[in-house]
Design a protein around this nucleic acid. Structure first.
Length: 207
DNA sequence: GTGAAGATTAACT
DNA sequence: GTTAATCTTCACA
């Protein structure tokens, strides 16, 4: 390694075991990495939303009823919860908390960092701005499908790389209402979306 | 077995 | 701002 170039490590299990809202607030700025036979893609997380199963009417695990789709949310934090939505798109979540606690964090937007040409090919789009500025788009760009359901983020193919060091985020994080959960009664107003202030890759403008 | 709805996107008007 | 695309999962019978 060259002098002055710091290799920052992979986020460890402990990151995923902290309080979900705390983890969600710290997630923007870190890097999502996916290694495939086609190549490696990396993107800096710029927008996430927390889903707290038991008390959150917008969560797939609301009420705690364990279903086939949400099985992985009940595992220990640090696994990938990927589901298909509207029959078309995949969405990538990071499972948090100890075993038995169905909480996760939806990754809603990334800033492309590495493998940008591969992302362009997968998306069939040239404009870099449209590569990863939405939950379905980033999965397509990163090559994430339900095949990655349950992947261990403490493994070597799909994981998070530290984008900054230390306990506190150096980014200016904004809390806002989540996107497209208006049906969720009282839960629609929870400020469980965390994004980097004014970042160009955030999917939906913060109010 | 049947049906409804969705943590979205892109292409419209 | 509105709407179609497209299909798995879940609720209910």
């Amino acid at each position: 390694m060259r002098q002055g170039v710091t290799a920052m490590g992979k986020l460890s299990r402990s990151f995923y075991l902290q309080d979900t809202l705390q983890a969600a607030a710290l997630l923007p700025g870190h890097i999502l990495v996916h290694k495939t036979a086609q190549g490696t893609t990396k993107g800096r997380i710029v927008e996430v939303e927390a889903y707290l199963g038991l008390e959150d009417r917008a969560s797939h695990s609301y009420g705690g009823g364990q279903r086939e789709r949400t099985r992985i949310q009940y595992e220990i934090g640090g696994h990938a919860y990927i589901y298909q939505i509207y029959g078309i798109h995949a969405c990538m979540n990071v499972v948090t908390g100890p075993p038995g606690v169905p909480e996760s964090i939806l990754i809603r937007a990334l800033e492309p960092v590495e493998g940008i040409d591969l992302m362009r090919r997968r998306r069939g789009v040239d404009d870099m701005r449209r590569l990863t500025d939405g939950p379905g788009k980033l999965c397509q760009a990163m090559g994430l499908t339900r095949d990655q359901y349950g992947a261990d983020l403490c493994g070597d193919t799909l994981y998070l790389e530290a984008g900054y060091e230390g306990e506190d985020s150096p980014y200016d994080i904004v809390r806002s209402r989540r996107v497209n959960v208006d049906y969720a009664q009282e839960a629609r107003d929870y400020l469980w979306r965390f994004s980097i202030r004014d970042h160009p890759y955030v999917s939906v403008k913060v109010n």
